[in-house]
């Protein structure tokens, strides 16, 4: 009886923690806006087949380069007569997939390396971090281009290439955090209890290093979306005719003077998405910081 009561109270504690985090986030108007943009993007990607008015790849030579608000084409058509709105909606799928996939890839490998470097220190630290330094010495796009030309085109390879570019950042953030958490007295206590490294790392060090990691990951999603657009713009991203915001920009660049909407619309989509994600990330950082009182 008493135990079940205790369990009930415990779930209360956890819930109030999460609830207050969400409250703090929502009270920050910029973060709320960011969250709204992100939800909109995710919903768009999920419901793309329902939202799209046309097939994104279907050409129509009789209706090329229609302007915004043309009949039957909300945002006009491109030089092949494809519906821009539909391509935009399907392009959101690529952006989300690459954004989340690349960040997940980079975060998992980067964090693992960062934890090893920070926790064990010494030679592990020197070797891992010097490799990370080497990796980040290349300009990000140059690195991605090199990787794409090695791996070949394709969505999965885009994710891997951008993910590899994200590894050093995560390794650095996690290593720094681990270095400070490692010094805490409760880690020494756990050691004195006879815990092995694995338990200390996964039960104590990582959970206490996670907050800045979440914030950094959120911010990185925006970067990954831009990177995908850049790669597609350079013709190294997803294969045409698959719609991606970057490839749409690329298609539109030749028509900038007479039909600026072709490039402007995907450009705006990227801008709004990235600003939204960054605002959300900022808000998340503030909400997770216990010293910040909103």
């Amino acid at each position: 009886m008493a135990e079940s009561q205790a369990i009930l109270q415990a779930s209360d504690v956890v819930e109030t923690n999460e609830r207050s985090l969400f409250k703090k986030l929502i009270r920050n108007r910029f973060a709320a806006f960011g969250l709204f943009i992100m939800l909109l993007l995710i919903l768009t990607a999920i419901f793309a087949p329902i939202l799209a008015t046309h097939s994104p790849d279907k050409m129509n030579v009789t209706k090329t380069l229609l302007g915004i608000g043309a009949e039957g084409h909300l945002l006009g058509t491109d030089n092949y007569g494809r519906d821009i709105f539909s391509r935009l909606v399907y392009g959101a799928r690529i952006s989300i997939l690459v954004g989340l996939g690349a960040v997940l890839f980079g975060a998992v490998i980067g964090s693992l390396l960062g934890v090893i470097a920070g926790y064990f220190g010494g030679k592990f630290d020197s070797i891992i971090m010097r490799i990370m330094d080497g990796l980040s010495a290349f300009p990000f796009i140059l690195l991605a281009i090199t990787l794409m030309s090695v791996l070949g085109q394709g969505l999965l390879n885009v994710i891997i290439a951008i993910g590899i570019g994200n590894i050093p950042g995560f390794a650095r953030v996690v290593r720094g955090q681990v270095l400070s958490v490692k010094q805490s007295e409760y880690i020494e206590v756990t050691r004195s209890l006879g815990a092995k490294h694995g338990r200390i790392i996964f039960h104590h060090v990582l959970p206490n290093s996670i907050a800045p990691l979440i914030v950094y990951a959120t911010m990185s999603i925006a970067g990954a979306i831009i990177s995908e657009a850049s790669l597609s713009f350079l013709g190294l991203g997803v294969q045409p005719p698959t719609a991606s915001w970057g490839s749409m920009l690329q298609d539109g660049k030749n028509f900038l003077v007479l039909n600026p909407h072709m490039a402007t619309i995907p450009g705006l989509a990227i801008l709004i998405t990235v600003v939204g994600i960054n605002l959300f990330g900022d808000g998340l950082r503030d909400a997770l910081d216990p010293k910040m009182k909103v």
Partner: peptide, 9 residues
């Protein structure tokens, strides 16, 4: 204050 892991019950 420092000897208890803040994320554990």
């Amino acid at each position: 204050y420092a000897s208890l892991d803040p994320r554990k019950t």
